[in-house]
């Protein structure tokens, strides 16, 4: 099942004579039961996409469905949770009142709501402060309350916009654990975050958005693999592979005794292995090299910016 489906979704903001393409014909499918991370620099259109999917902003053209229902049908939001980037709760309410209000609006009430509030406050570790006014809460506590608010209706699909913003490292780990637990319950999580290391740790699939365009989309593994770069570990430290370097193969010796090999394609790699084996050198390990999500992200954005300048 596809939890989020967009087709040529576009949003153009007009500011005087200037038109800004916040989303540019975005087509995206997010499978149900996965954690999807949307990455992009500030102003890439990440929040605009979430707002359109939730009916907070209207698309200029294109269409979208969440949980197989057109986004214009607001009743589907009974199955959706949302934590906005800069959420604001009435300062005169306490945590229980905030959750009670948003729970009732989401269609939960009675004993079920009371139980859910207690359970969620325990999960986000706010039980001890549940009767304090939210105006006395720190940024991290507000984020944790926001997460509880997003989960109050036991949603199937959860949108989180910078959920760990302002949260300390221990709190971040706890939020990550909650998200992984939700995925294990087959919930779909759509995550906007600047913290790439965090996204890398928990997401199943990632999309990279820049200037409203989806530049890349795939699993973290697919996106971070360097397809033409390998590390070779030999059985002997004395063997030197640099002599096999050619126009289609570059070879560098690393300080740990391994060799980094860059080839044009897999057949070049195999040719090189044949040469090594012909010299009776024993290969212990061949490892496909990976970049971090951050490296990949920066390279994709730079590539796109370069292409735009041309």
């Amino acid at each position: 099942m596809i939890a989020i489906q967009t087709s040529s979704l576009s949003k153009i903001y007009s500011s005087g004579k200037k038109k800004i393409n916040a989303l540019n014909e975005l087509s995206l499918n997010v499978p149900a039961g996965t954690i999807f991370g949307l990455l992009g620099p500030n102003g890439a259109g990440k929040t605009t996409l979430i707002k359109i999917l939730l009916g907070i902003t209207y698309p200029t053209f294109g269409s979208a469905k969440i949980l197989d229902t057109d986004i214009s049908d607001y009743s589907i939001k009974q199955k959706v949770g949302y934590l906005p980037e800069n959420h604001k709760y009435p300062p005169y309410l306490n945590a229980v009142e905030v959750l009670s209000f948003f729970g009732k609006l989401s269609g939960v009430d009675g004993i079920k709501l009371t139980k859910k509030i207690d359970e969620l406050l325990e999960t986000v570790k706010l039980t001890e402060r549940k009767k304090s006014k939210v105006k006395t809460y720190s940024k991290g506590m507000m984020q944790r309350l926001g997460l509880a608010q997003a989960l109050i209706n036991d949603p199937e699909l959860i949108f989180l916009d910078e959920p760990t913003d302002g949260v300390d490292p221990i709190g971040r780990k706890e939020i990550r654990d909650v998200l992984v637990d939700l995925r294990n319950q087959s919930k779909t999580i759509f995550l906007n975050s600047h913290l790439l290391s965090e996204v890398e740790m928990i997401t199943d699939r990632v999309g990279i958005l820049n200037k409203g365009k989806l530049l890349r989309e795939g699993s973290v593994k697919e996106l971070t693999e360097k397809k033409e770069e390998y590390k070779i570990r030999l059985n002997s430290d004395s063997a030197d592979l640099t002599k096999f370097a050619s126009s289609e193969t570059s070879i560098y010796k690393n300080s740990d005794g391994t060799f980094t090999i860059k080839v044009d394609n897999v057949s070049s790699l195999n040719k090189l292995i044949d040469k090594i084996r012909n010299e009776s050198i024993l290969v212990q390990e061949i490892i496909l090299q990976k970049s971090t999500l951050e490296e990949m992200f920066i390279s994709v954005i730079n590539e796109a910016e370069g292409a735009d300048k041309k």
Partner: peptide
């Protein structure tokens, strides 16, 4: 209608 408040309200199943 303040930012952060209206987003939350409109994300709920209410017209």
């Amino acid at each position: 209608l303040e930012k952060g408040n209206i987003d939350l309200l409109l994300s709920k199943p209410i017209s």
